[in-house]
Design a protein around this nucleic acid. Structure first.
Lengths: 208, 208
DNA sequence: GGTTTAACTGATTAAGTAGTCAGAAAACAT
DNA sequence: ATGTTTTCTGACTACTTAATCAGTTAAACC
């Protein structure tokens, strides 16, 4: 049995993902300015210097976190494809996005925070990646509309409504829990949420 | 003609609202931690010490800003009353909220920021005022449903969807403008937004 | 006009911040 | 084993921050 000669590499990967996870949480809870290296270090249970060793500075760490988020977020829209059935595809998209809101709320919060503040760090990302990605999806939706599979509405605003409606449950999680008498949503309540959003949105866009 | 003996009072009010306006902007653009007295002072064109003179500390100023926002936000729902026609009332609510998103985006952003970070400063406000306010509106909507004027859907999630769908245009303003080729929305585009949201949501909740 | 009171402000302080760096420790190579 | 490279870290620095406060200016009162 060969000894693995890469103890370093394995350790490096472990540490990096551990730091990113901690950073995602701290950036979400405190915003960019409020997130200090010492808070992130405490969360990751690693010395502050070690974090700087891996990521050089705060902005680099932040960008790494945001890029991870964006990749996941992007892959959630895999179902929005020309040849898929619109209702099924959009229902699937809503389901997936709500599951992400439930399971990975911190990423969503970091993104929201960044955009609210005018994307000072990831403006280039928005102009390139997000812009292209959004246009691609809009083309698909417009195709569905043009071929009579969807009611004639705005593809752009439909996307925005799906984003807003789903991400709300991540970004405003705290508000929702407060209004739910300080309890997290139960499985049943998440089911209800999924059902509600699909019900309203699909009813709004399907040809009658 | 009597001389006004209240030069001081007038000046005080002027300064306070000037400071709050500047603070709302800076808190929205930089978050709670990122908003420093010196930034707010620069924005308000007043010395830093003067701001502290009026508001004692950062948290007090912040709370003043949030309370102002909340009051305005609350009054937008005046139309949600038992005796009003549901479709008209909800259409009016959506219109009003979208106008607020357009004209007062900073307040919305401050609120969003605060909630995303778990409402560290205004938790009590959420538990008292917002909770009561939301329950009141939900009772009205439930009444409409029970009396057959609306389809049987979730009053709670309907409110959330309206909030999410409208506030998105304030909170994510920067993203929306970036996706709009770096142009602010035109009058026409705002019209289109209003139309879209009312179209989808009303279609989703009206009895067929 | 002179006194009291409120409004205001520049200088200062104590605490926290991002980032540097010299050197220790571990992993790897031979 | 020895040397080399990479990983790691505590101590430090230069800077920013919220908040204090002593002292100044302006308004209100009589």
């Amino acid at each position: 049995m060969l000894r693995q000669p890469q103890k370093q590499i394995a350790n490096r990967e472990k540490n990096i993902s551990r730091i990113k996870e901690a950073a995602e949480y701290v950036f979400a809870e405190h915003g960019y300015s409020g997130a200090s290296f010492s808070l992130i270090a405490k969360q990751a249970k690693l010395p502050k210097s070690n974090i700087i060793y891996y990521f050089t500075n705060k902005e680099t760490l932040y960008r790494a976190v945001v890029e991870d988020i964006f990749d996941i977020w992007r892959s959630a829209a895999d179902s929005i494809k020309k040849d898929n059935d619109p209702s099924t595809a959009i229902a699937e998209y809503i389901d997936t996005k709500l599951e992400m809101a439930r399971n990975r709320p911190f990423g969503s919060k970091v993104w929201a925070n960044e955009v609210i503040q005018g994307a000072p760090i990831v403006q280039d990302y928005m102009e390139d990646e997000l812009h292209r990605w959004t246009n691609d999806r809009m083309v698909v939706i417009q195709h569905w509309i043009d071929s009579g599979k969807l009611r004639a509405t705005s593809a752009r605003h439909l996307l925005y409504l799906i984003w807003a409606g789903t991400q709300h449950y991540a970004d405003f999680q705290h508000q929702i829990e407060t209004l739910n008498d300080n309890h997290p949503l139960t499985d049943e309540q998440w089911q209800e949420t999924k059902y509600f959003l699909k019900d309203i949105i699909l009813r709004g866009i399907c040809v009658e």
